[in-house]
C-alpha cells in the first residue's frame, strides 16, 4: 500500500485516495471549436510514460481535495505532490 503525501493532510495511506488519471489535461474552453480528432485526443490520448508521470489523485476519504503528484511509474515512488492549479515542479531525482 503506497504512502501518499496529501498537500493538505500530509502522509496518508493509499486506501484513503482515488487515482484520477493524468494531470494537466485541461478541458478546452470552447469544445465546439475542436475538430473531432482534437476532441478525441483530449478525451482519450494519454502519455503513459515509463518514468516520471504527473497524475491526479483525490484524498477522497480525507480532505476530499484533488491534487497532483509526480510518480515514477517504474519504481512506484512519488517524487512530489502539489496542489491543483500549480504547475508541475521541476524534478530530478526519484525520491523514496
Amino acid at each position: 500500500m503506497l504512502l501518499i503525501d496529501c498537500p493538505y493532510c500530509g502522509l496518508r495511506p493509499e486506501i484513503e485516495f482515488r487515482y484520477g488519471g493524468e494531470a494537466h489535461i485541461a478541458r478546452p474552453a470552447d469544445p465546439s471549436a475542436l475538430s473531432d480528432q482534437e476532441w478525441a485526443d483530449f478525451l482519450y490520448a494519454r502519455t503513459n510514460p515509463k518514468g516520471k508521470h504527473a497524475e491526479r489523485w483525490r484524498h477522497i476519504h480525507g480532505c476530499g481535495r484533488y491534487f497532483n503528484a509526480v510518480r515514477d511509474t517504474v519504481s512506484d515512488f512519488f517524487v512530489t505532490t502539489y496542489r491543483t492549479g500549480e504547475s508541475r515542479p521541476e524534478t530530478e531525482e526519484s525520491a523514496r
Binding site: 482515488r18 484520477g20 485541461a26 478541458r27 491526479r56 483525490r58 477522497i60 476530499g64 481535495r65 484533488y66 491543483t84 492549479g85
Partner: peptide
C-alpha cells in the same frame, strides 16, 4: 458526487 467534485475542483475552481 465524485464526477461533480472533479469538474468543480479541477476545471471550474
Amino acid at each position: 458526487l465524485a464526477h461533480m467534485e472533479d469538474y468543480l475542483q479541477t476545471e471550474w475552481p
